[in-house]
Write a protein that binds this DNA or RNA. Sequence first.
RNA 1: GGCGACGUAGCCAAGUGGUAAGGCAGAGGUCUGCAAAACCUCCAUCCCCAGUUCGAUUCUGGGCGUCGCCUCCA
Length: 477
Amino acid sequence: MALRLHNTLTGAKEEFEPLEHGHVRMYTCGPTVWNYAHVGNLRAFLFYDLVRRHLRVSGYRVTHVMNLTDIDDRILDQAMHAGKTIADYVKPYAEAFFEDMAALRAERAEHYPPATEHIPEMVDMISTLIEHENAYVADGDVYFRIDSFPKYGQLSHLDRAGLKAGARVATDKYEKESVSDFALWKKAQPGDEKLGAAWDAPFGRGRPGWHIECSAMSKRYLGDTLDIHAGGVDLMFPHHENEIAQSEAANHKTFARVWLHSEHLADATGEKMSKSAGGFTTLRDLTAAGHDPLAVRFFLIANAHYRSRLRLSAEALHAAAEQVRRLREFADRLARTTPASADDGDLAERTAEVRAGYREALDDDLNLPQGVGLVFDHVREANAALDAGRVGPLNKASMQAMIDDLDAHLDVIRAEEPGLADEVERLIAEREAARRERDFGRADRIRDDLRGRGIALEDSKDGVRWRRISPTEAGRS
RNA sequence: GGCGACGUAGCCAAGUGGUAAGGCAGAGGUCUGCAAAACCUCCAUCCCCAGUUCGAUUCUGGGCGUCGCCUCCA
């Protein structure tokens, strides 16, 4: 089955085929580094990660660009209050973004262009738009002339007549030809120089509007036409609509062939997570509360399909952590199993079925939750087979391959085990001696001590195993 | 006001015109020195009403509810 993706442009699932055979050009809207990313932002970023991972699983080479918005009104505001340049103000948050992404095991994109390092590209594009009369200068500001782009609204399917007029007028100081014309360039304000937020341009000193950076930087790294452009649903209008207008008016080429939009993460009250709504949770908040970042990862990409709303809750996070634990437990058990002499034919058939089904689920618009469900079903069957000693060498290999398939997207199973610390090993041996002497009091004390230090012991007929556990898990006895 | 989405067990959630995956939580078992892990069993007729159909949770219409976008926003 071929890969099918839901294209916002057409509102339908379409078979995906990149322009250049075997190579996918993908642009995704990255963070505005004015603050820590909240979990809702991270959901979108991990969605991009899922897309690129599955493209790679599908055999494509991927060139993925994710921008860093390091200049916008919020940043200007905050930098001014902090008495810093925007570059200084933004730096720790940009670093935090990469830390978060690493903690969540997002694969790195090929390029992370910051807006402020691509001002010339933006100026060029704005100049072109002015030449083509798709843009006009109004007292130092430059606006895009929406009337010059009849296709405007094709992505969000918004009828311009139905747009609520008025709200925008108040924020723009100067006359625009039309209320929905948007800013490409904003004239430098007195304070901007001190903030390091003003650049020269043929149409006057100033700073870029928000939308132009994506058009200019995607062109710089990926060319005029993208195979995939992704972002959160809230960017569909006006941001992505404006990108299309700018790029297509400037380049006279289709801007993006497939548009992917991920749904919002809701907070505990069921409303979209955002600063203003009050529910604003960062990854740091969650890890401080004892949550494993990889459980957060699992929750964000595997708990619900990317196009449905997802609600953050302690219960859901706990469920995700349990699922991760269960998968690790299984992978671990499989790895340490000595295969039976013969393979189980029925089991082999089921494994093959599940692997195929998993692939189909991902090919069907990245339905990871469905794929994961199939695998869990088989994990139970496989555990039973393991209990019964019915797992042969081929069975073992194919189930390990299934885990590899799964972890190609999830990437939460294979933890980098630091190796048995000598002390843990010594304590386990000590406890084993105590157990042989039937000194269970001493044996339990050792186990409890280790548990308090984040190491859980499990006795089985194959010997004692240990694993790291989270602080919250350690608290339970 | 315009456009759109969603409403499946205590919670999260997948899905199909033919009587509903999976996970968490819960109950009872097996195993175990005790645990843990694992396994077994139990736990829903899919918001309401009407229609189409041999048959609808899945299609159509209406209603109720929740949410999103229309303004900065992943």
